[in-house]
Write a protein that binds this DNA or RNA. Structure first.
Lengths: 237, 237
DNA sequence: ATTTCAAAAATAATGTACAATTTGGGTTGC
DNA sequence: GCAACCCAAATTGTACATTATTTTTGAAAT
């Protein structure tokens, strides 16, 4: 299932057609967003190039791209640092998505075909079958589910923004488990969403998506908070 | 009036404290967004480094940053191109701003102080005094007006997104004149907005801002369309 | 004579190495 | 104690090598 969607194609930063080795950019980005590199950590090109086994230029260019994307902050002549990906950052992203995704969904309701709805149902089937057994696989399916809705939107800029935010959130939540109540809510909200689309109820669909995004954000932030407190407790002992 | 706001400080990509010469990044970005470089134009590092009088690395790094920001698209081993800044792109941005800015404004109404309102009024005074005589200066004042509202928002990500969009739109509209009816609307809407904030009417303020953004977008797109048609007519003769 | 295909040359991107500034810290001399 | 200075570390800029892609060219086949 090679999802060669307009978004992923547009966002594909390397031209990964035949499984090229991941670029420095991809490695570095993953290490930042997954938390392997501490918030505010200094990013010295010499260290990084040694670590990733390349020369300095690929690292320098990766840093610049990540700066453009906002994952890295730089001061002139004083180098780069990891932008902290903290609870505030997640909250900020979620707030934007709460505005964006309902709007995208509302439009989708107007153009959705019978085929689309069947595709959504098929994906939801697979998600429920899997039942969160494989986190990685679940994330993939869940992303595909929402992507189907946003992917075709005429507003490419909005769709790309969604995709970028999605990737950040996905990388963060990979660190934490999904609570049972959240699992329940995800499945239920997906079903409700499909139903609203089928009924051509754009407002209802938008409202469900808003709840869905909000809930997902709350869950992530809660998990982050718990992890922080655990970490503090462990450090204190 | 050195507007050293959190946003501009955060967005300041070079650490421009004492009027350093503009970086390759800034020059290139301006040339893209102002239309000096054609949409989809190829961006060869050798050409650009010759043009800007530097070696290749600064150009390469600038391109990567611009790629991260979405102004440039790249294919592996096939170089960079200017992302077309066309009517669709403006429409996409405006649609996002129509969602974003009202939300930011709604929050501002809740925290605005008497001092804030006076500051807004003072700026509006100066805008009306100037009466669009100096386009550059008007843009500066208008930006400052809206910046006062968005700048302090706790959602840094949203504020930065607004700022980025604002810069793009500013650069585009610099190419075109402002119609008389649009001038009227701008002044009137600003006054209405101040009034709504004073009355603590968040919903009304949000609605006005939505209109304001929408109107600004319509105006730019109209101007772009006219320019295109004029260009086509001129080429046909 | 025209088309087709392949190989080679040119063009341009990507990676490596190194030189030159800038910054921050520490030490010495007053 | 403090200021000037120097040194180490890191960023930024330049030059060059390598690799990938595109274009050209020339010979064979239709």
């Amino acid at each position: 299932m090679t999802t060669e969607s307009p978004i992923t194609a547009g966002m594909d930063t390397t031209g990964n057609e035949q499984e090229q080795p991941p670029s420095v950019y991809e490695l570095l980005r993953e290490d930042i967003v997954s938390g392997a590199l501490e918030p505010n950590a200094r990013l010295k090109v010499a260290d990084l190039s040694k670590f990733y086994g390349t020369s300095t230029n690929p690292v320098r260019e990766a840093l610049q791209q990540l700066r453009g994307e906002g994952f890295v902050v730089m001061e002139a002549n004083r180098g780069a640092r990891v932008r902290p990906i903290d609870e505030d950052f997640v909250r900020d992203i979620i707030e934007i998505e709460v505005l964006l995704e309902p709007a995208l969904t509302r439009w989708f309701v107007g153009v959705a075909t019978h085929v689309d709805i069947e595709a959504l149902e098929a994906m939801q089937e697979r998600i429920e079958e899997l039942d969160f057994a494989d986190a990685r696989q679940h994330a993939r399916l869940d992303t595909a589910f929402h992507q189907l809705i946003y992917d075709r939107h005429y507003n490419r800029h909005a769709a790309e923004l969604w995709w970028k935010h999605r990737e950040i959130l996905r990388a963060i939540s990979r660190r934490y488990p999904t609570s049972l109540s959240r699992r329940q809510a995800v499945l239920s909200e997906h079903r409700q969403l499909i139903e609203a689309i089928r009924n051509q109820d754009a407002e209802e669909a938008a409202a469900i998506v808003a709840r869905h995004v909000q809930g997902s954000g709350h869950h992530i932030i809660e998990q982050m908070g718990m992890a922080n407190r655990d970490g503090a407790r462990r450090r204190a002992s």
